[in-house]
Design a protein around this nucleic acid. Structure first.
Lengths: 232, 232
DNA sequence: AATATAAGTGTTATACTTACACTTAAAACT
DNA sequence: AGTTTTAAGTGTAAGTATAACACTTATATT
């Protein structure tokens, strides 16, 4: 702090915020978690979950803290998306915002939506108007999700620890917004050799029941380190 | 400014910097433009081109301004890469830095390196130690370049307006760090149908001379808008 | 006229991707 | 107990894209 002032004091400082684009998957639909803004200005309007970076915390730490404070969600998949720094993006003052995108699995999905925090899930196909540049951030987040899903098995982050092939396929269909052939889909996914088939079935969506699988983190890491590159 | 204080004044503010990872291509090598830092602390050590965001300018504007001030380069390809916000990343004080990556064509390449600004080109295969987290930023920039080069015809940004097939191939070989088959390379590039073959030759590197091409921006945009996706 | 050098060109084999339809397991109903 | 209903599960063949491979050509230099 004292050195800060010593070297850089002639330069201006700015409020820095983090905003999280939180995707979830449920009932065959890809959804976004938003809430009504809790503070002025624009209090009560639809907003991503955001807050200001505090002294002594990194951007990643701030993003995780804000998310936890506003939704109770912890230890979820999160990565930086892009910074937004237009001088007039926030009408209430100069704020530079770092957008994060986050994926949460179905188990936590329900709780977050029903919580005391006033969070709401909206379908990405029918987004309400959001404050400032949050709509732009979401579009960018969706593009990133599509790209990531195609080249990394990121979809698994959006599912519970155990899932069925039809569920996984339905997730990818929601991300790409197109129907996939189930034979080809299974072939590709299984060819990656990162899934473990369990001998139990999930019977919630059919009489026959669908076998459960889980993602094999170890095999995946081995593949990635070996230079292998996924494409779904 | 006054509204800023009104609404957000309880939150801390930070110095925000931009740092540019500038790639160039020359003599068959992919290179990075760096310089010796002009101010304390760590004055005289190898550094990316960076500076502080000023009041009233966006991050993009700051990145372009800083680059121009330090290298004289203007209107070059630039995009945001990632933000770096660890609390202790700069030993002299809290600074949040937004890294940009930039590509400059061969024509401007030479000038930038020989300039009054003290800029130096170093091979990406043999990078010197750099201040703070600049080495990490460069690694990230290289990964981005590789990925972008594979899916967008971004390589053209690194070449002069007119170039030959052997030059283009050599650029891709430098980016991927592997040799490519020239027949297959030509086939793929030409199949994209975004190059215009000129009837002139460049004879600087062979007696026979190689035909010059230029990139057709219009055709490219048409393809991209039509949903086409490149892969080299 | 001969030589040296990099540019330029096609084909075949292999791998990957896409399209496509029937069988099976199990609960629910009669 | 047998029949019906529903989603899960499975294989093959055609088409497309990728990868491997070697000789000819244009031109400056000697």
């Amino acid at each position: 702090m004292s050195t800060d002032k010593q070297f850089y004091k002639e330069h201006p400082t700015f409020h820095v915020a983090v905003d999280s684009i939180i995707f979830g998957f449920d009932q065959g639909e890809l959804k976004l978690l938003i809430h009504k803004r809790k503070f002025e200005p624009a209090k009560g309007e639809w907003s991503l979950f955001g807050g200001f970076v505090q002294q002594g915390e990194s951007l990643d730490e701030a993003a995780n803290r804000v998310l936890f404070e506003l939704t109770g969600l912890e230890k979820i998949y999160m990565e930086e998306l892009q910074s937004y720094g237009e001088a007039d993006r926030d009408p209430a003052g100069r704020v530079i915002s770092v957008a994060y995108y986050a994926l949460i699995p179905a188990k936590e999905f329900i709780e977050a939506g029903n919580s005391k925090y006033g969070a709401t899930w909206v379908s990405v196909k029918d987004l309400p108007p959001m404050i400032m540049d949050h709509g732009v951030m979401v579009k960018k987040g969706l593009r990133r999700l599509k790209r990531r899903a195609a080249s990394q098995p990121i979809g698994f982050e959006l599912l519970p620890g155990e899932f069925t092939m039809p569920q996984l396929q339905s997730l990818y269909e929601a991300i790409y917004q197109e129907e996939l052939d189930k034979r080809n889909f299974r072939k590709k996914i299984l060819a990656m050799d990162v899934l473990i088939k369990l001998d139990r079935k999930d019977k919630s969506s059919s009489r026959k029941g669908a076998f459960l699988y889980r993602f094999d983190q170890k095999k995946y890491k081995k593949l990635v380190n070996g230079g292998y590159n996924f494409t779904i």
